[in-house]
Nucleic acid binder design. Structure first.
Length: 491
RNA sequence: GGGGCUGUGGUGUAGCUUGGUCUAUCAUCUCGGGUUUGGGACCCGAGGACCUCGGUUCGAAUCCGGGCAGCCCCA
């Protein structure tokens, strides 16, 4: 009889249930906090999340962003100052009382940084020489999402990272957007091994207050799009609303140009869980795992002397692996070896080392990679050297599996009929010819959405938009297609 | 935003239709003891639960209403 420790459904048969079970059983989050959409980040999960933060912080600091920390609050006036951005207002949490007393002026829990940061920006910069300025913060965001909440996918409080950048010229802002794409490639792609496409959003679907919005989108195992981050070209919209001006070389005051970049820490975590995980549970890139190596002893009560040697050997290996920098644990709990195998697979530990009397006698170890279905026999003397290679093999396995899945779920279509079938059958990304990504295309996007039960026009590829063959027609209105756009169902 | 479902020890559940030996089932779990360990061992003992507020009733885990929370499907 199997105990209910492990995952009881298959990932490709019931992704929703699989996802919930992994989140809870691998101790990533606790959803029993009791306030809707607010979850507890448990140690095993939060370690991984902190890695995401570390990578991002390291990368943006290389580009000369510096950290700061703004309050959790935002003033009501500030929130409403930019007219499009004020669209957040109906969903924010207001703080209006302290104890029994009503506050003189209510304020909101910040939904995102713009409205709380830019009033200070208007005080900080006086001269064109103060620019460019690049700041970032790692912080929590909150707003009342009315849709069903899910851990790491949709919440009312969620982990956030945001850069807010100020330039003298629009061209510099556009350069920054390219740098943000680079950050996504390095962090989300290379470090976290998540494939994505980088889109320029259609005109009608930009962030409130932005001139243009760019996003890396990936696909979850159920074929739905998951937006992992967004970069916004804010133009001068906020600088005009918040009065952020500098004096230029020509002695005239000018409004600054701004961008902001916001990777969704939660969304990235959800993608990591969903895309890398398998039927046994979590799979984690080697550098991100709280534990990289688990050592499991196999002992016998009727072989006391040998068992003692086994334990000693395990301890020795544990300390030598720790010494060279691997996060290693010797699991000397009283559970049976089989139980431990299943447990640590569920938690996604990259390497499992098994030591029993045989290994002790032969000076070998048995070793299993989380991504493989076999045990390897290694000479003890080679272990330290081999581990490095094996961890990078694991990372390659994770990466190629993710890439293959992603590639297999990106398709083409040239007709609405065909698109409808593909969406129904596979979901995923589907490339289609489309009339316009300016506001006049929105009508077609709405029709497309209605016809396909909710598929969404993600936008055009960035930075290099794909060419459209000269006589192709928009799959909705049949006018000349100006763009190739990607369509997907979304979270 | 629309629709549906659910809430019983830490976890998963039985009981709810037809209210009454429910002093609440089973497993897991936790603790103590024994025994065992090469892919989810076993035995003995102990511990631990009816989401919340109100209503109906002699009597509510069970019926009704509000609230809170969770899940699923669809936009």
């Amino acid at each position: 009889m199997k105990r209910e420790l492990g995952i009881t459904v298959k990932k490709d048969e019931n992704f929703s249930e699989w996802y919930s079970q992994v989140v809870q059983k691998a101790e990533l989050a606790d959803i029993r906090f009791g306030i809707q959409g607010f979850i507890v980040h448990r140690p095993w999960g939060f370690f991984i999340i902190r890695k995401i933060y570390e990578y991002l912080e390291e990368e943006v600091e290389k580009q000369c962003h510096l950290p700061y920390l703004f309050p959790v609050a935002v003033k009501e006036d500030d929130l409403k100052r930019e007219k499009d951005h004020a669209g957040f207002t109906p969903n924010v949490f207001w703080i209006s009382e302290a104890g029994e007393k009503k506050l003189e002026e209510r304020f909101a829990l910040r939904p995102t940084g713009e409205a709380q940061i830019y009033p200070l920006y208007s005080l900080w910069f006086r001269s064109y020489k103060d620019l460019p300025f690049k700041g970032y913060q790692s912080r929590i965001s909150a707003f009342r999402n009315e849709m069903t909440t899910r851990p790491f996918l949709r919440g009312r409080e969620f982990l956030f990272f945001e850069t807010h950048n100020v330039f003298n010229r629009h061209e510099e802002a556009l350069e920054q957007i390219k740098e943000d794409l680079d950050t996504c490639k390095k962090v989300i792609g290379e470090k976290i091994k998540l494939p994505f496409l980088y889109f320029k959003r259609p005109e009608w679907d930009k962030f409130s207050g932005a001139d243009d919005t760019y996003t890396p989108d990936t696909l979850m195992p159920d074929g739905k799009r998951n937006q992992l981050a967004s970069t916004h070209d804010l133009g001068q919209n906020f600088s005009k609303a918040f009065n952020i001006k500098v004096k230029g070389k020509d002695e005239k005051e000018q409004f600054v140009w701004q961008t902001c970049f916001g990777p969704g820490i939660w969304r990235i975590m959800a993608a990591l869980i969903g895309i890398h995980g398998d039927n046994n549970g979590l799979v984690i890139p080697s550098d991100m795992s709280p534990l990289q190596i688990i050592i499991i002893p196999i002992t016998f009560s009727n072989k006391e002397a040998e068992s003692k040697k086994v334990i000693e050997l395990c301890r020795k290996i544990e300390s030598s692996l720790k010494k060279i920098g691997y996060r290693t644990k010797f699991d000397d709990s009283e559970d049976t070896p089989g139980f431990k195998h299943n447990k640590w697979e569920l938690f996604g530990v990259p390497i499992r080392v098994e030591i029993g009397p045989k290994e002790a006698k032969n000076k070998t170890v048995s070793l299993a990679l989380r991504t493989e279905n076999k045990k390897r026999q290694l000479k003890l003397s080679n272990l330290e050297k081999e581990i490095k290679k094996l961890l990078s093999k694991l990372d390659k396995d994770i990466e190629s599996k993710a890439n293959e899945y992603f590639k297999n779920n990106t398709r083409n279509s040239n007709s609405l009929k065909d698109l409808k079938e593909l969406i129904k059958k596979y979901k995923g990304f589907i490339k289609v010819p489309f009339c316009s990504v300016k506001n006049d295309g929105e009508k077609c996007a709405d029709i497309l959405k209605a016809e396909t039960d909710g598929a969404y026009v993600c936008g055009t590829l960035y930075p290099k938009e794909e060419k459209v063959s000269p006589n192709s027609k928009c799959i909705i209105c049949n006018k000349k297609a100006e763009h190739t756009v990607y369509v997907a169902k979304s979270y």
